[in-house]
Design a protein around this nucleic acid. Structure first.
Lengths: 211, 211, 211, 211
DNA sequence: GATGAATGAGCATTCATTCAT
DNA sequence: GATGAATGAATGCTCATTCAT
């Protein structure tokens, strides 16, 4: 909202793929901009509509309420996160643990790049927390990690793998969020990613042969 | 993402040490109650004043604005966290790594016990983030951990120790926050604490003799 | 003030006589349903159009504005009331006063049966009151009653007959409306009808031979 | 709202007796004016506040919501009606039936005098209908009439007296409301009152000795 | 110092109506 | 003719903060 460091973010070019209408795309785009520039506190439907060059009425034609916009934004984030995790964790051309380290790195980096927006979105969490869809999104990501665990720790008990997936997701997303809140330098973020990647690997190594 | 709810937040008996006046103490006490029971969204000066048995006017005599109350609450939390870390990490009667594991456990447990209040306080973050005092508090905690690192990793390069302290604080507080948001069961929280404690130790072991 | 609720409003099968187009009929039908189920407050052109399976645009092709729909509904009510009164009051096979009593009974009963819809329509009165057509409809009903008075009180002064007709219509419709608002039981409504019928007859008896 | 005839009403000097604060009085006063001049449709808290020379905030300090203002106005009306009925119906210096006739006359007259305001208030009924207090008010008035019935029809069965009281109140208030809706002349209103008074008396005469 | 009444900008949401396609 | 997307004024209500008493 103030201070905070803002390196890459800009207009968040995010694909906005085949959105049914340009209007929805415009609204989401505007929402991102409002969030990043005005902060969660001043994220109002009026501002979004105005920045989108749309009337409030139109906005409400596509989103049942303010929260829905935020949730959609968040859902898109999770979607991207899931894709990122999938892409990296399932890449069988790389050694398993390297993939995990890479995933953490990549995740932290995107968090850091979009920090302004991410922070604002996190600030808005109270507005959409605990929706069933939110749980779904979280679980989808966790499932991704679980698939990786199944491959990486084939001999570990199934509960251990589930726990590891949950723990990795929790730590990664919590720290990622924290990192976008603090105005850190890129190298700091990288170092943090490396450290956390190492910790994950050490942890997995430890349970690899547990039974 | 969720499992159970912690047992009630018990009005947070916190000592409220030698506050300059009883009035301030009452206000903070009331603020905690309002936050825990009504949530960040309904945290209004009027409610706090009423619950404290004070007039709004008086409230504004001691706090320049609403944010100030929240910040003070947050500062108290950091203060307690610092004390907790100090108490545990400096306890020379226990092996070093066990202390670290214990600190994580203890920290997560208090987060979990007070989750209602902590979540609400976190939700209010946008209202007081980035004050210089907040930075101060964070640094004080980190210093604590750094003292521990100096003792535990006497041979490691000074930057490694600093980084380790920062990383531990970041991960611990970020995950602690996340845990209170997710309404997990006590045993889940414990398991998470154990895992993270182990990861920290593994990490420190890894840099212990680095030069 | 209340007792029971009438049994459901049965979608008001009303003939919808030779309406110029089926479309208008559909709209009115839908309007009745919306009014009965959603109440005057939620009676919106959008809902009516949707329930009618028509676009808003089409709706506006046939009705200049929302009030027009309501007025048309109201006009239909008056039309039915007029028919009912005519049918009963002009039925020369029954004794005159019995006809009057019967008319009150029948009128109250239909009010009561359709109370959900009638109440909503009354609630919407502010939206269409005082149109000249409304006056016309009222007068048509009163004329009906006047015809009856002319037959029943042939010797009474013409002004007395006019006044009696006006009074009977006023009391009957006012009390009928009130009854549908109060959600009374069928037997209460019947008793009220009997009493009011008796009062009318007593009154007419009193002016029968006045000059 | 438009048309309608506006004879006496004006600013409704209504006592506004020992209202705890002038502010509440001002708001109610303004509410009456807004209602009479703008109609129920345009009765908004903003307008009332403005006309009262008060901020919306203050208005909401004294009334929890818009409906509460209307309800208060209505309650005052009922209160006055009750007083009027009590005053007249319990006046043992006059013959019983004359009292009843007088009550109807007086009631209709006040309705007629305040018709602009009464109509608007009735239009607002949907906003406060069916509150328990509203029932209370109705019952208080009915009790008044019942007391009269007990005195006037000591030999009639108790249920007959109860029914008579209910019927009289229903008819009187329903017709009174209708009368204020229609823009009638004073003499018409008077004639209507006379006729209805006569009908009531005839009815009571009829059940006086029933058993 | 203490009080709490007063302020009024700010916000989410609805809905009658229009008009380009 | 039919459609339904777009409009934007209007509304009820909240709440941080001030200031006269």
């Amino acid at each position: 909202m103030k201070t905070q460091k803002p390196p890459v973010i800009s207009v968040r070019k995010r694909p906005l793929q085949a959105r049914s209408t340009q209007l929805v795309a415009d609204i989401l785009e505007a929402a991102v901009r409002v969030l990043a520039s005005d902060g969660a506190r001043h994220f109002t439907t009026a501002r979004v509509a105005e920045k989108a060059g749309v009337s409030v009425g139109s906005l409400y034609q596509y989103f049942p309420n303010k929260e829905a916009i935020l949730f959609r934004l968040q859902a898109d984030e999770w979607q991207e996160t899931r894709e990122l995790l999938e892409r990296i964790l399932a890449d069988s051309t790389r050694p398993q643990f390297e993939r995990l380290r890479g995933a953490v790195q990549a995740f932290f980096l995107t968090e850091w790049q979009e920090s302004e927006f991410r922070v604002a979105l996190d600030d808005a969490t109270p507005l959409y927390r605990d929706t069933p869809e939110a749980h779904e999104n979280w679980k989808a990501c966790t499932r991704c990690v679980l698939v990786f665990m199944n491959e990486a720790l084939p001999q570990a008990p199934v509960e251990d793998r589930a726990f590891a997936a949950d723990m990795v997701m929790t730590v990664m997303s919590a720290v990622g969020e924290r990192i976008s809140e603090q105005a850190r330098s890129e190298s700091e973020v990288k170092a943090m990613a490396v450290a956390i990647g190492e910790m994950f690997c050490a942890y997995l190594e430890g349970i690899k042969y547990r039974r």
